[in-house]
Each structure stands twice: as C-alpha cells, then as structure tokens.
Amino acid sequence: MVSAVVVTYNSARTVAETLSSLTGQTYPDDRYEVIVVDGGSTDGTEKVAAEYGVRFRVAEGATIGACRNRGVEAASGEYVAFTDSDCAVPATWLESHVERIEGYADREDVVGVGGPNRPFPDDPPFAKLVGSLQGTVFGSGGSPQSHAIDGERLVRSVAACNVCYDADVFSEFRYDDGINVGEDAEFHFRLSEAGYRFVFDPTIAVSHHLSADFGSFCRKSRSYGYAMARVQRRHGKVIRWYSALPSLGLGTGVLAALSDWRARKIRYLPLLLSAFLLASGYATAQVYRDRRTPLALLIPVMLAAQYAYYGVGFLEGTLAPDPVPQELP
C-alpha cells in the first residue's frame, strides 16, 4: 500500500494536472491512496481537488513542513510518496518508486527513493532555460534533485517533489513544523546524519513548473538562500558547503573591484572575472547543447543573478533575529 501526498496552497491553476497524473497510475487502484494537504487556500483549490475523489485535509496557516507531517499522519501506506501541486508525475511513478525501493530491501540504511524534476514540455522558454541550467554543476551545486546524474546511485538528499519513503522512517523522524522553504533539505540532513541514504534514479522524473520569468527566478534564489541559512543556524553547522561558494565568489569579485578601484590599479579583478567567464561559459555550452537555443547566451546573467540573490537571502537568514527552533530527532 502506498500513500501519495500532495502539499498545496492556492494551486487551483495547477493542481488538476497533478491529481490527474496521480489518479491515472499503472499501480493497482486498490493499493494506493491520494491525500491532499492544503495550507488554507482561498482560490478554489479544494473545489478542484474534489473532482478527483481524493482525501482532502486542511492545515490552516501551516508551513510546508507541517503540511507534510499532516500528510504522514493521515497516510495508511507502507510507503509514503510526495509530489507538489505544481508537478505532474508519469503513469508509472508509483510503480517505479516501489520497485526501486524494494530492490534495496536488504539495505537498512536506505529509507527512500527520489528522482529529478524537469520543466513541462509546454512551459515558457525561460522556464526550460532554468531547467537546463539546473542540469549543470554550476546551476545546481551538484545536488542530485536537479543536476543531471546519469545513473542510479545512493545520495544524502532528494527533492520532496519527487520522493517515496519507507513509512517506517516516520516512526522516529518527522519534518520540522517550523520550516516553510528548504524543509526537505533540513529533514534529509537529519536523516543523513543518522546514517540513512536515498536511492536517486534519474529515470523516475516528474514535470515541474519552474520559474517562468527572471523576477520569479531571482525571488526563488533569494528564498533558497534565506532557507539554507536558517537551516544551518538551526543545526549550528554547514549543511551544504558547496551551496554558498558561488555567492562568496561573487562577493569576493565585488570586493576585488572595489580594492582595485581604490588602489587605482588592476590587480585581482581580471583573475576573478576570468574564473566567472570560464564557469559561466561552460554552463552556457551545456545549456545550449541541451536546448539548442540562442537564449543560452542569458546563462551568465542568470548565474550571476542566481548567486547574488542567493547570497542576499543567505545573509538575511543569517542575521534574522528569529529564535532557532527546538531540537528534533
């Protein structure tokens, strides 16, 4: 038995394609259930969900982490799968997840299976550009949920929009109710610290509506930076050391430019600029090879914006006065 949980908030425009994909699975109908946990939508999300005969739970004002926990509490399956209300899963999604996780039944350290998320075929060109950028090491920081890994492997974390857990893990661990963005990174960090791992299978991909324009892309990068800083404050240690490196590099470049300007001579800036052009050029070539579009020339600007906004968010999250949440298992 599998419980498929969808966390949503004001997703009336997209939740229908999510639920349509979930209710059309090749997995036996009597062996899975679909549970929608709503954070208090006001746009008719519940009315849309009612058309699909799914179980609907309202968690008014709850964070994403809290909504995921409410889904776990309502689940009756031996496995609990999560996707988001701006995603669509393939018809074989549950079947593939169960087959893969049961293939590791002899590994007590494997608690789940995850895969990548890709833009929808009919998404705007910019969203597809974002998807291709995330498929580069400089666009994703090497994280498996977006970076193009070619083969199945064990990883420390996967994206919560495409994951299936062994339900037994929730008897000891839960998401943090206080986290609204980055809740999966924080939860999986605690699991990895306890020695658990996920199977990442690049063939189990979901379609995901990514940022459709430059403004939303920047805002999302800022929110990720803020979330990661808060998570690291929460644990008092660096969780993803590589995630802040590009932002630090950009900051170093700005400081180098100021230093050169004050000294009235060019010393450090050319070296740092060359490093950025080399990295962004490599990412541009990868994106062009993937998309075959001249829009790939936007990649250097997108990379600079992504890590500038990530850095701003990270700084804000580091300096925010909110108290650190209480310890969780």
Rank of each mutant, 00 (worst) to 15 (best):
A16N: 07
N10S: 08
T14G: 05
A16M: 10
A49K: 12
V36F: 01
N10Q: 11
E17I: 13
V15P: 00
S21G: 09
S11N: 12
D43L: 01
S20E: 13
Y32K: 08
T42K: 14
E17D: 12
G44Y: 01
L22A: 10
Y32F: 15
A16H: 10
V34D: 06
E33Q: 14
Q25G: 05
V37Y: 03
S20I: 05
D29W: 03
S11T: 12
D30T: 13
S20H: 09
V48C: 01
K47V: 06
T18V: 07
T18C: 13
E46K: 14
Y32H: 10
V36G: 04
R13G: 00
S41D: 01
K47R: 15
A12E: 07
T42D: 11
T45P: 00
I35N: 10
T45V: 05
Y27W: 15
S41R: 06
E33C: 01
L19M: 09
T45W: 08
T18S: 10
D38L: 02
S11Y: 10
D30F: 01
T42E: 12
T45Y: 03
V36C: 13
G39L: 11
G44A: 00
V36Q: 05
R31Q: 15
T18P: 00
S21D: 04
R31K: 14
V15T: 13
T14N: 11
D30C: 02
I35K: 07
D30M: 07
T26I: 11
P28T: 07
T14H: 10
G39E: 02
N10W: 07
S21N: 05
Y27N: 09
T45R: 02
E33K: 15
T45K: 10
Y32T: 13
E33Y: 04
L19N: 10
Y9Q: 12
G39D: 04
Y9L: 15
E33N: 14
L19I: 07
G24R: 13
E46I: 06
G40Q: 10
K47A: 07
G39R: 14
S11C: 12
V36W: 02
S20F: 08
V36S: 03
G44V: 00
V37R: 05
E46V: 08
Y27V: 11
T42Q: 08
N10D: 15
T26S: 15
K47W: 01
N10I: 11
N10R: 08
R31A: 08
